[in-house]
Design a protein around this nucleic acid. Structure first.
Lengths: 113, 113
DNA sequence: TTTGTCTATAACAATGTGGTTATGAAGGAT
DNA sequence: ATCCTTCATAACCACATTGTTATAGACAAA
């Protein structure tokens, strides 16, 4: 998977409220599929599909405990996408600073005129 | 639009490589639709649709200059989604610290035993 | 006014997403 | 052995996404 494809998968995974809620739940610690499904008015296969997308994006990983497949968050994918956004934010804030400087100079010149 | 719907729209918008490339281009400054379309092997209506999704997510806004509709980045939506991810990252790193503490304690106890 | 440029929209096709029910496989528990 | 729980997969449906071509609107230029 290329970096771009990984971003595709991660952003796609984060674009659904059910999946974000699942991630929020997993922040508190591991959980089985049934445990994750419980709060939602949704069938178990629907949750399994959501988990598959989260796993494909590298946002979660799954273990084995008898019949259960406990899910846990993987921080790396989250860190990568945060990093990507941070880069943009930095450039953007840089632009703002540039604009601020420009406006300050403009105002200074007006004062002089 | 609820905060959750805004996150849906923003993550969906960011989940496409063409749209991310458009944002990258707009980091350098305003650009018209034709200018944005130029680097892509894609029709102008396709680009217009991408711009519509970016606009719906609040990631860009558009002005008017004769026939042209110059696009520019809106930092706020980017800041919001970055904030959301940061919250998660913090909790996640918090968990890591917790784990580190746990491991340190465990090792200390082993030393004592 | 006619022409040309920039952009949006409509109509369409292919594919992806998000849900369902039905069913099967893995693995305790009785 | 049999049953129950957990989970995944297949088949299906409705709708969204992503591209296409064709066309129309707004506006400048001739």
């Amino acid at each position: 998977m290329t970096p771009s494809e990984r971003l595709d998968a991660t952003f796609t995974a984060l674009a659904d409220p059910t999946r974000r809620a699942i991630l929020a739940r997993l922040m508190q610690g591991e959980a089985s599929v049934m445990e994750l499904a419980e709060p939602f008015a949704m069938s178990q296969p629907a949750i399994s599909k959501h988990l598959k997308m989260l796993e494909r994006a590298g946002l979660i990983s799954r273990g084995r405990d008898a019949q259960r497949r406990p899910c846990r968050i993987e921080g790396e994918a989250l860190a990568q996408v945060t990093g990507w956004l941070e880069d943009y934010r930095k450039v953007w804030e840089g632009n703002f600073k540039l604009l601020d400087t420009l406006l300050a100079e403009l105002q200074a010149n007006q004062g002089k005129a």
